[in-house]
Design a protein around this nucleic acid. Structure first.
Length: 404
DNA sequence: ATTCCACAGGAAACAGTGGTCC
DNA sequence: GGACCACTGTTTCCTGTGGAAT
């Protein structure tokens, strides 16, 4: 029997079992991992600690606003400082409670407040997930803080998104949060807002700005050189010695540096490249692996976005695919055809216009406004991704099988 | 100079769902 | 069981737009 007839599955399984792993500790290759030393952020760590120090003296710290582009280490620094403070405080019996939420993960104001409530220890019975007026939810939060004399620190990540929700619904939650201390007889409430958007304050009520921004800290972007050092730090802990080629490291830092110094992206690239190299059973990670990782991350993002769309958004993407480069009116006609073929009730053109804008925002299609004189104003859309990705993503959904 | 097209996109209202509270 | 609430997805109505055609 020739060795050529070895079962390919067996061969791969053997290789995986006997092959050396390049990665020692995967945890370190995730951006959410908090390192002992957060490189190049000493000054910011000091500032954050400084403004939260009053807790140790058992008084209420100032509200704090933190700005910085994505991947500048804002959340990591805040989490690290808070963890350290908590360690110290636990030794005394001064009750503080650290509460973290991300506005983007909670899609509604109600959800955000409930998330606070749960972390304060309120059960489903004390605080139902729906049905109450927002003011009632707020009242219950304050009640538990007073009753247990908690000194609560609410960390609100992506607070710009919350500000957006507030302006959309007209509820002055932020105002109430910032002024909660005036209503609390015992215990206290401190806010730490984290934002990617340096201009979001302009959209806030001036009364909120004055109390929320008692202290402000800006996290500058990382330089390419700094990103390289951050990567080297993680590499030394996460990979076997000499696994990452120098040119690959440089490329990784350069790619992330191009996007306003995003350390998160750099670390992601590194992790995915490591996984690709490991799967290929190579002994080192080279530039090709980094490029492949970048492409994989990009494609993954597109597929996840497409899968997350509701039915009519999906139908619309298919309609755009069939008419690429045409105006809203023509796309609407195409969409109506697609609806007919799939026996769905079509939505109005106004709604479709809005959906097209939403889809454009997520980068799946691109649009350009065209003035055609007497032929009016319209927007022409085309796909920003390969039609193959769309077909591949939707091919398993029975409803689309006849139309793609 | 005026008209007119084919929409863009804002605002408000509405329907429906899933819940609480008394 | 009815009043009330938050929220989402949608429809309806409306104003505004820039340049070709007249």
């Amino acid at each position: 029997m020739s060795t050529l007839t070895i079962d390919p599955v067996e061969r791969l399984l053997d290789a995986a079992e006997n092959g050396k792993s390049l990665i020692i500790n995967r945890e370190i290759l995730h951006f959410t991992y908090i390192p002992n030393t957060i490189l190049h952020r000493n000054e910011e760590q000091e500032k954050v600690t400084q403004s939260l120090l009053p807790i140790l003296k058992q008084s209420r710290p100032s509200n704090l606003l933190i700005y910085g582009k994505p991947g500048t280490g804002k959340t990591l620094v805040v989490r690290k400082v808070l963890l350290k403070i908590q360690e110290r405080v636990e030794k005394s019996n001064f009750p503080i409670r650290l509460i973290y939420t991300n506005s983007k993960e909670e899609t509604t104001l109600y959800g955000l407040l409930v998330s606070f409530g749960r972390q304060l220890g309120l059960s489903e019975k004390d605080l139902p997930t729906t049905g109450l007026a927002i003011s009632e939810v707020f009242k219950r939060l304050l009640k538990v803080i007073t009753k247990e004399q908690i000194n609560a620190i609410f960390v609100i990540d992506e607070i710009d998104y919350l500000a957006h929700l507030v302006s959309k619904t007209g509820k002055d939650i932020l105002y109430q949060l910032t002024r909660a201390n005036e209503r609390l007889q015992k215990g206290s409430l401190t806010l730490v807002g984290i934002s990617n958007d340096l201009t979001f304050k302009e959209r806030l009520d001036p009364r909120v700005i004055s109390s929320l921004g008692e202290e402000e800290i800006v996290f500058p972007n990382y330089t390419v050189e700094q990103i390289r050092e951050i990567l080297e730090d993680r590499i030394s802990m996460a990979f076997m010695d000499g696994v990452l080629e120098k040119s690959a490291l440089n490329l990784c830092a350069a790619m992330a540096g191009r996007e306003h110094g995003d350390a998160r992206r750099a670390i992601d690239l590194l992790r995915v490249a490591g996984e690709i190299a490991e799967r290929e059973q190579t002994l080192s990670i080279n530039e090709e692996h980094i490029r492949a990782a970048a492409q994989k991350i990009e494609e993954n993002k597109e597929v996840v976005t497409l899968q997350s769309y509701p039915l009519h958004e999906k139908l619309l993407v298919i309609a755009v695919m069939k008419t690429s480069g045409l105006s809203t009116g023509e796309i609407y006609t195409s969409y109506k055809n697609v609806c007919k073929m799939t026996r769905q009730k079509e939505l109005t053109q106004r709604r479709i216009t809005q959906m097209l804008s939403d889809i454009e925002l997520s980068g799946i299609i691109t649009g350009r406004i065209i003035h055609q004189g007497i032929h009016g104003r319209t927007k022409k859309f085309k796909l920003a991704i390969s039609p193959e990705i769309i077909k591949e993503t939707f091919k398993n959904e029975i409803i689309f099988q006849d139309i793609i």
